[in-house]
Amino acid sequence: MANKPIVATASLAGCFGCHMSLLDIDERILDLIQLVEFDKSPITDIKNFERKCDIGIIEGGCCNSENVENLKLFRKNCNILVSLGECAIMGGLPAMRNGIPIQECLEEAYLNGVTVDVGDEPIIPNDEELPMILDRVYPCHEVVKIDYHIPGCAPNADLIWDFLTTLVTGKDLELKYETLKYD
């Protein structure tokens, strides 16, 4: 099939659990690659967008400047953008730091935390190569326009399968009670 929909995926401030759940569709992945073609994704290890993609799947929210850049790049290069999982939808576990001042977070993580090695001289990492951490974690749809949200931590593999197959075949998705979960 010459013009299969092209899918790109990214993991922002996530744990890769949603990508794992995508792989949990098991042998149906063979059917999936008959239906779609994967482009830029941690699964294919393609690093850059060389062409316009049809579907972009985003795992994780935005916790630093690189996440925001990457998300905007996906919005620019994908016709349909999908938030996959709780972190992309509402910030998820990383968003538990929202409400704690960023300075306090960094000091706890790098200076005062119980696991900081007191033998070294602890510093808050400040290399200019490092992306700037944001004041709080932002859900993807508060940064760019998101077309669909697939909840779950991680989303049920059957839900991802149902969603992708109905999307590429142009059918209406019926959200099944058994597969729609927030945890």
Partner: peptide, 23 residues
Amino acid sequence: CPTCEKSGNCELQAIAYHYRITA
């Protein structure tokens, strides 16, 4: 929800599921 002890027994969550709220 992923870190909540009440998840699965929570009525707020259950009503959100009932209405198939995704975000």
